[in-house]
Amino acid sequence: MFQTTPLIQNSLIAILALLFCTHIFVLILARIKKNVDFSNLKLRMKSWWLIVFFLAFIFLGNKAVGLVMVGIICFLALKEYFSFIHFEPDDRKLLFWAYLSIPFQIYFLYTNWIIMFYLFVPLYMFLIIPLRRILAGNVKNFIKVTSLIQWGVILNVYTLGYLGAFLLLPFAKTSSTANVNGLQLLLFLLIVNALNDASQYVWGKLFGKKPIVPNISPHKTWAGFIGGVATTTVIASLLGPVLTPMSLKVSVCAGLLIGTFGFIGDVVLSAVKRDVGVKDSSNLIPGHGGILDRVDSLTYTAPIFFHFFCYLYQMGL
């Protein structure tokens, strides 16, 4: 059904070129400004190469490979969430069942059973998790533990699973969806989302003074947010008409959505980490922290952009 297009290949080459230039720029900057510590930024650049290499599999391989890659992202994120929450050993079988939701979600996507993909986690996992705990006969912290697990599955499996849902677009070939390519949409989302994270960070570093949510994250400032969303909107309006069937007007809306909700996803995960008292979700990606630290904004932007697009082009829901 879908194949990688020359446009995607060119985009990947462009991303590699951009990464190369940024890396060189960082290295030169580190040479000139010897009094500033660039070691974290250098580490981050190295990790970006690995991330791009890993994600390239989604865009070059077939549907099965792409979906497995998405499943791996969900798995690593869920593992980090379960590990920093600290569950009781009695609940380990519950966690095992929660992990099983990942192959199910991937299977539903692979067989184009999109309704089940929408329903399985919010409905069936919601029913299965308490059921498993009843079978174990454990009533200690019943609501608390089942909610924590359900929340983790929604956050890490359901929302991130939407990355895989893009691979199913268009659901059917009609005249209105003739030039819809799911892979290109996903590429658009990932590029805009990553540049949104980066530009919010840079604007905040350069001009940030007044924090938006001082209790959750003192580093997130109004300047970072507004400058970031503006930059993201410009990037989206440039990339949208090229990579997707969206017009300039719709691309601007998409940019605003990804910019705003990317910020919110970031803050929500900061709140989670602050609640459990960890700085990074793990140390999987050198310089970045854990995988959850990297995909936090996608937990909001992936489902929201997916439904935004499907609604506009009358697909699915």
Binding site: K79, S83, R92, K93
Partner: peptide, 12 residues
């Protein structure tokens, strides 16, 4: 993977 259990549960 505690003692006496057969099912492995991923954890960091």
């Amino acid at each position: 993977l505690p003692r006496g259990e057969a099912i492995f549960v991923p954890a960091i």
